[in-house]
Design a binder for these strands. Structure first.
Lengths: 329, 329
DNA sequence: CTGAAAGCGCTTACAG
DNA sequence: CTGAAAGCGCTTACAG
């Protein structure tokens, strides 16, 4: 049951440990005869280099921490994103030969934990996935001098890739206005989140610019908050004919309220969401929404990190927004 | 920029490396005066033990591989599960002081990769998340003698926690029959998956037992396959008055076909799904479905693994099924 | 091209 | 209770 060491391989092959190491690591300066006898010994013994020993000697791990700000339970709005992002980032990193260490960073405790882990040289780099607001982690880690990138904007010191939240929101509102809608309301996300702020800004900018009055209700990205906000909007302004929700989940909640209040969608009120989650396909009517390219987003962020490993000094990147028109507008 | 070593701490504190190590690891046999001076030095230097060195010396890593069988792209049916399971398992493992290394194992290549990784002693144990069929990995890993568990049944050699698929399907069918439905069809998942097989068996068992004829169409767990299968069922047996789909996504597809064909749900045809994904709440009408307790499932599986670490010899576990009745029946 | 030796940064019997 | 020393299993200049 004892695993074979490099030394055992050397003994069996009748060569030095140095030579075995060279063969294992594909050094070019190895005689074919030696290579052959070593490889045979490796095969016969079922040798696999011990990770910790190698890491200690090389000072590298070939691992990357994928740090996801884990929201409080119940806030499921980002579940589809979690899945898409974590999956795609893992695929890309594995393809690049990096192992993914997944770390959740919801509480202050877990943030300390992450910082310690990184400080212990467990990983060569860090990818932050931070859909949720202000965090102490980015700046803490950035100071350590370890390569780090962020999916979503966080700290000025951390290179990032972000969605064009502002452009996307503007696209949605222009679309509604272009249909002849006059009284366009918005339901915002939690305003301590940058994405929420930007989507709201996109909305208000277009409304102002086109001479319309802003009609705002505040939600928190959950479906229930969307339903509540919609009820309030209807009460405040029964004549509104369109609503832009800052995410799909709230849009879905709004649809339900509209149905309950006897409004037809899109005839009486048009609805646009944001994110293009899978559930947006299943609503009745199917939801018009701003597409968040989660897969591309994850890919671009991984590329940014890999670039950093190569010594690059990469600039932040903004992904273009895209409107998917379905039946709700 | 050079990180301080244990030796540096010892020098600064004026004690031996042994003593520093003892303090760091909380050994009880340390004089308070020494502990104090060491802790101060640690603080002043910002010392964090080097992970690889420690792993090499102790032969342990405090890490666990979370191996997820990553399906081909496009098969999104398990996304909500991926999210719930990965998240909950991570939470639990982190709480137990284990670091989570996420590994995707969709292709044969990545499976080799996982086997190598485990063989390299990167981790102390493995948790498989294997919603998808027969896999070479479980038996390969089980042979290595490393603690391993599986969420979902896989290999006889691997302890697992599973959903009661059979019981859940039976529950669904009995519910439909209990409503007076007579011609109850089923849409199955891909039949190379154990979960699909069991859900089908649950259906046929109850149908036979109650003297009803089975009406079966085969799907693949995607929404589109559910829509197609429903179309076919309607064509074969226009008089059917209920359908049990082996997952929610297919049930959602079936709902759409039923609407298009002018059937009212639940008046003309009742529909039951399986899994209770979030989208099941948003359909019109909201979907009756068998709840898959993903969170509990992940928790139980982690507990099984932690038990193995403690030297336990844990038996497989079956989670009880539960029917959530909504508007579609 | 190959090998002997030092070193990576910890932990852990072993003496005292 | 404390310290000197050996050892964990690799890699990598350095000589030859």
């Amino acid at each position: 049951m004892n695993r074979p060491t490099l030394e055992a391989v050397a003994a069996r092959a009748g060569v030095s440990k140095s030579s075995v190491s060279r063969v294992i690591n594909g050094a070019s300066t190895v005689a074919p005869s030696i290579r052959e006898v070593v490889l045979r010994a490796v095969r016969e013994l079922g040798y696999v280099p011990h990770a910790a020993a190698r890491n200690l000697a090389t000072r590298r791990t070939n691992a990357v921490a994928l740090v996801v700000s884990d929201p409080p339970k119940g806030l499921v709005s980002d579940d589809p994103m979690f899945s898409a992002v974590v999956r795609q980032a893992s695929r890309k990193l594995e393809a690049a030969g990096k192992q993914v260490v997944l770390m959740l960073a919801g509480s202050e405790d877990s943030r300390t934990r992450v910082a310690q882990y990184v400080a212990a040289s467990h990983v060569d780099g860090v990818m932050l996935v931070s859909m949720h607001g202000a965090d102490s982690l980015p700046s803490t880690l950035a100071r350590k001098g370890i390569p780090i990138v962020s999916l979503g904007r966080t700290n000025p010191a951390v290179p990032y890739v972000d969605n064009d939240n502002l452009g996307g929101a503007a696209l949605a509102v222009r679309h509604l206005l272009g249909q002849g809608r006059r009284r366009v309301a918005t339901i915002t996300g939690p305003l301590d989140m940058i994405a929420s702020q930007e989507r709201l800004t996109g909305y208000t900018a277009v409304m102002r610019e086109t001479g319309h009055r802003s009609i705002v209700a505040i939600g928190d990205f959950t479906r229930i908050s969307g339903a509540d906000a919609m009820r309030q909007l209807l009460q405040d302004d029964p004549g509104l004919d369109a609503v832009f929700a800052a995410n799909d989940l709230m849009a879905i909640g709004a649809l339900r309220t509209l149905r309950e209040s006897g409004r037809r969608v899109p005839d009486d009120v048009a609805v646009v969401g944001f994110d293009d989650i899978e559930a947006a396909l299943y609503t009745t009517p199917a939801l018009t929404t701003v597409h968040s390219p989660m897969t591309d987003w994850a890919t671009a962020t991984v590329d940014l990190l890999l670039g950093l490993f190569e010594g690059g000094r990469n600039a932040p990147l903004l992904l273009p927004a895209d409107l998917v028109v379905r039946e709700s507008t």
